[in-house]
């Protein structure tokens, strides 16, 4: 009986690892594609007013991939680090917003 539960547990873990691996590979491939896309945008003759926001967007998505899939923030038990990261981002964002709107407007 005990053996049985162990084996099902292992199978469950195996399936989970497989899923995890799949996520990692997909996000890795996506990141490579994004990087190539970013370089391609710069090399091609597209207006920089289009290129810059798109590159920034791609960068943000890559950071999200990095944090959530490679650094496991999507897994349980990461609520507090997430809260701190977003809190810090909010403060940094406020600072930059102030500097660009009040000081250097």
């Amino acid at each position: 009986m005990e053996k049985d539960t162990n084996s099902t547990h292992n199978e469950f873990e195996k399936a989970e690892h497989k899923q995890e691996m799949q996520h990692q590979v997909i996000s890795f491939v996506m990141m490579i594609i994004f990087t190539i896309a970013a370089f391609a945008l710069v090399v091609s003759d597209i207006s920089k007013y289009f290129t810059i926001p798109i590159i920034l967007l791609l960068a943000v998505v890559q950071v999200v991939f990095q944090l959530y899939y490679f650094m496991h923030m999507k897994n349980k038990g990461h609520e507090m680090p997430a809260l701190m990261i977003y809190g810090g981002l909010a403060v940094a964002f406020m600072t930059i917003l102030t500097f660009t709107t009040i000081i250097w407007w």
Binding site: V91, T95, F99, I102, I103
Partner: peptide, 12 residues
């Protein structure tokens, strides 16, 4: 430079 930057950083 800009002296107001210090004021903002200090009060942030």
């Amino acid at each position: 430079g800009n002296v107001i930057i210090w004021e903002h950083l200090f009060w942030i």
